[in-house]
Design a protein around this nucleic acid. Structure first.
Length: 287
DNA sequence: AAGAGGCCCTGATAGC
DNA sequence: TGCTATCAGGGCCTCT
């Protein structure tokens, strides 16, 4: 599910609700995620204080009082739910995929703090929760990832050098976390639409002006999505203010055969599938 | 090294 | 209604 903006919203919500709280108990209901949760996981979390919650790319990081870190990735279908123990009432902004009720199936991990249960749910199990001992190991875990669009390192010089001589199309690179981290399949299409660049265009053939636009609109789209509370593209049933609203502002994603929204453009949005992933674009105004 | 493709999984929806 | 096929917001791994 989540790309950088959705993960950021979850992180902000956790920051408000669980910072400086002590972990009383951890219950694992299903150890099978992308990486199997080790048997000593519960003991290593118990009695730790969550001193800080941060995010890098699509990863949420819980900083623990003994200097270790708990890294959470939501994969395609992971959600985090905060349940008030007595009333079993769920807080907002922690769920994009599911409705406001705690799912009955696939609750893998429960982290119990004083007045809350933090529940990790992941039907498809593409996500994971891992512990790393220290900052060094944390950095190592993220070593292969490129800068976020917001970082200074994501500049013209970097982009130009990275993409010169590359044979793949630009959309593949926006999805390539080694090049830039945090962008996923929705925002890649949306960014390229605003750039007026055809997703099939070879990366090395982009002009300096086009590279500048990619840098610019990557920031613009992700920032706006964060302000809108992310995108909630499934389970619209519970719209009690808990879902993000950026999906209402999609220009191309899931708009196949609909009219291009660029002023005076007569194009229709096309969908192209490569490697099992859909790309949406206007084949008239995106050159 | 870079690129293409497969695979990990369940659930919602579309089509018959 | 009940089957089957397709698709889904990600990333890791292998092969060429």
């Amino acid at each position: 599910m989540p790309e950088l903006p959705e993960v950021e919203i979850v992180k902000q919500s956790l920051d408000k609700k669980i910072k400086q709280k002590k972990i009383k108990r951890v219950i694992i209901k299903n150890r099978n995620l992308r990486f199997k949760i080790p048997l000593n996981f519960e003991a290593q979390l118990k009695n730790q204080i969550i001193t800080k919650i941060s995010r890098f790319s699509k990863y949420i990081i819980l900083h623990l009082s003994n200097g270790s870190y708990c890294i959470i990735h939501l994969g395609m279908s992971g959600t985090i739910h905060l349940i008030k123990k007595d009333k079993k009432k769920e807080f907002t902004n922690t769920s994009f995929y599911s409705d406001s009720n705690l799912p009955k199936k696939h609750n893998h991990v429960e982290i119990i703090i004083k007045d809350l249960d933090i529940i990790y749910n992941d039907p498809r199990r593409f996500g994971f929760i891992i512990l790393v001992k220290n900052k060094n190991e944390l950095d190592k875990r993220f070593n292969h990832l490129g800068p976020e669009p917001f970082f200074k390192e994501f500049n013209l010089n970097y982009v130009l050098n990275y993409l010169k001589n590359k044979k793949k199309d630009i959309k593949s690179f926006l999805l390539d976390q080694k090049f830039v981290s945090g962008i996923g399949n929705i925002y890649a299409s949306e960014i390229l639409f605003l750039c007026r660049i055809n997703p099939n265009k070879k990366a090395k053939r982009l002009s300096l002006h086009e590279l500048k636009k990619i840098i610019h609109f990557s920031k613009v789209v992700l920032k706006k999505a964060i302000i809108r509370g992310g995108s909630s593209i499934r389970n619209f049933k519970n719209t009690s203010g808990k879902n993000g609203s950026f999906q209402k502002e999609f220009n191309v994603y899931q708009r196949e055969n609909l009219k291009c929204l660029k002023y005076k453009c007569l194009g229709k949005i096309k969908k192209k599938v490569t490697g099992n992933r859909s790309t949406f674009f206007c084949n008239i105004c995106q050159k």
